[in-house]
Design a protein around this nucleic acid. Structure first.
Lengths: 245, 245
DNA sequence: AAAATAGTGTCTTTGAGACAATATCAG
DNA sequence: CTGATATTGTCTCAAAGACACTATTTT
């Protein structure tokens, strides 16, 4: 790729390198709303950019610790939520001269889906600077650090887009879950009602759920519980949900 | 994001930075086949990695020239093909300790679609080290530099996936083009036949084509020519092409 | 006229959407 | 029993798939 690359592993560089960071957009559904995890940047004691502003969790790649970008994303996710292996997908990357006042930087962004029941936010000294926010409210009044508002916007669009034709919302629930619970997640993310009968037909026809006994849960009549046949990836439906399709 | 960031624009760093590169997967359709543009890496005179191997076009981000990642991708595309504004979409990023022997590196990958008639490959001293390859053959016997075989694989999967439900193949044709021409592109990319009648109905119903007069081209009966109503982005079909949908 | 390609029509099937009906539980 | 929620059934409609048919050009 390069014309005149450095030769050593810790090179005396002949040209400046951009900063490399990884950020993670962590979604969950709680209180009937789609939420995103944000962290508050430290006050201006250290002359950091955007002091006190909320931002997506993330930070510099640590060349000595992270074997690759995915590992770095998993590390940052774990540090903030304690969650071990959620659904994690690469969203894209943002890079340029002006997104960070310290200089040319590029960030690799992942997005994660985690069930709200699985969460224990990072404890200890900086527990207070990690919190869930309603996506709707953050987007309506974005005051995020860096270009994180644009990144969040892209993540939500990607999520909504995928939900139209994939089984992604299943990753927002703990197993086993019921079809009405799953339908509710679809409705929350899509922000519209979904027909009950068609939903059930579609989900069961797609063959990605396996029965896991009845769940005597929150409602009057117990519902069948299901688990995912394959937790490694969502399945794709051949059609979109929306009407006028 | 960072814990202890550098303070200046050309900082004396307290920790090592990964290399940042941009690579572009450039597709076209020619001779009834999907092709990808590759460049040959220089011989080992300069102790570069993978001497003589073929690679995706790309290289280091130039902090002084590229305002952002997209601009960098457009620059590299233009340098190799002379094409000015093709369809260009971010594919993803690959980064890790072992993909480049010189050290931890991360590459931001874009993929481009260009009509084969628009191309004039880079001329001059290094014209010979740029060439089109059949994607099928490269994937069958990958000997690309770095992790470019995996990247190409991902790009092809993305392209094939998108083609199932978008108007992307239109960006592989010069305007005006006919519906039979467009159908042929779909068939080449998908590597399967598509029904003529259904194809026409679908394309015209999607309202993204505008008539541009008859084209008295290659065949016996002249066909209606079309242009894209909006060249900025493909449109999405509500369903997939495949049977068993 | 024959060949070749462009374009249309018809029939069947699949599955979504709407909505009504039934089933099973808690009180 | 009544209320609430789960689950199923029915009817209609839109669009895909398969495939036959018609139209317009070149030779």
């Amino acid at each position: 790729m390069p014309a005149k690359p450095p030769r050593t592993k810790a090179p005396a560089l002949s040209f400046p390198l951009p900063f490399t960071t990884v950020d993670v957009v962590i979604f969950t559904v709680a209180d009937d709303a789609l939420k995103v995890l944000l962290v508050q940047r430290p006050g201006d004691k250290e002359a950091e950019p955007f002091p006190g502003a909320w931002a997506l969790p993330g930070g510099f790649v640590n060349v000595d610790v992270d074997v690759d970008l995915l590992a770095c994303a998993e590390r940052k996710l774990g540090e903030k939520t304690g969650v071990r292996s959620p659904y994690l997908e690469q969203l894209g990357s943002w890079g340029g001269a002006s997104r960070d006042p310290r200089g040319w930087s590029a960030t690799h962004v992942y997005f994660a889906l985690i069930p709200s029941r699985d969460i224990e936010l990072a404890k200890g000294a900086n527990a207070a600077d990690v919190a869930w926010f309603k996506v709707e409210e953050v987007l309506a009044n974005p005051r995020l650090a860096f270009d994180h508002a644009a990144i969040l916007q892209a993540a939500v669009e990607r999520l909504r887009g995928r939900v139209e034709y994939t089984s992604l919302p299943a990753f927002l629930l703990t197993e086993p879950f019921t079809l009405p619970q799953l339908q509710r997640i679809y409705e929350i993310v899509l922000n519209r009602d979904v027909d009950k009968s068609g939903f059930r037909t579609r989900m069961l026809a797609a063959q990605f759920l396996v029965e896991a006994g009845h769940v005597e849960g929150t409602s009057n009549r117990p519902a069948m519980g299901y688990r995912l046949a394959d937790r490694s990836a969502p399945i794709l439906f051949p059609r979109t949900f929306s009407p006028r399709g």
